[in-house]
Amino acid sequence: MNMAQTHLHKVELLPKDYKTDTKPFWCPGCGDHGVLTAVYRALADLGVDPNYLVNISGIGCSSRLPYFVRSYKMHTLHGRAGAVATGTQLARPDLAILVNGGDGDGFSIGGGHMPHLARKNINMTYVLMDNRIYGLTKGQVSPTSQRKMKAYTTPYGGVEEPMDPVLYMLTYGASYVAQSLATDVKMTARLIKEGMEHKGFAFINVMSHCPSFNQIDDAKYFKGAAEELPEGHDVSDIDAAMHAVNVAHQEGRIPVGLLFRQERPTLDEYMAELVKQAGGSPDYDLRKIIDLARP
């Protein structure tokens, strides 16, 4: 693992030092509180300088998380957090980029961006807080809701098959894919920390129960369905990762832990190389470019 990340500016802070004055607005008992605690812990463990941390989110309950984290931050549009973060990361590869969002934000309205964040290997950590429901709009089925779920707009039960976020991200070419439960703060913090240390696009799906609108996938359900990856799971083996997820998905289980990790160049590295080859510099004389347009 590449421990020497230039974008992590080492400081010594405690988890509470990453808290802002704004109190989390989530319902009591919401899994998002656990994710937030894990984020604080991961940041403190890594010693991320808040001045060089940019926390970006879309829209939804979970997308409020940046308000509670001391950092530079953007609260963007529904589904666009990853795309906005791409611009920030490429413009300033020296920054640490943390993206938060929900299942609807990431895989419904923002689903078109996910493949490209993954395959382009944009150097950021995307923590998806998956509650399998639209919470902020008071309970409609999401792309990860179980079929037959009765909700706001599915009074007779939902009719669509859910998708599996980690299976998609493995397929899309994410270079770090992990899954955990919001109730397991320790594991979640470790996976976020490792994700931020990872050079490239790190995706962590955190099952974050919604006590207000999702009565099916509650904390107890997630705990019962969760299953640690077998001893000796090879995190460099994409087939093993996909197999594990596929089998678990079919059997209604949720594999937790680090599924897959791969070292490969990030988009900003490729671009830096390209600029280097072009002899690129802000001092490059524009006249040399303009001269090419002489008749």
Binding site: V54, I56, M74, T76, L77, R80, A83, V84, A85, T86, G87, T88, Q89, L90, A91, R92, L95, G112, H113, P115, H116, L267, D268, M271, L274, V275, Q277, A278, G279, G280, S281, P282, Y284, L286, K288, I289
Partner: peptide, 28 residues
């Protein structure tokens, strides 16, 4: 690239303008 800048072909126009806003926030 000669001027040291960055160009990305986005997956759609929504992503393109989002990336522009993200880069501008970063000071560029």
């Amino acid at each position: 690239p000669k001027r040291g800048g960055t160009l990305i072909q986005a997956e759609d126009e929504i992503a393109a303008v989002s990336q522009v806003v993200g880069a501008s926030f970063a000071g560029k």
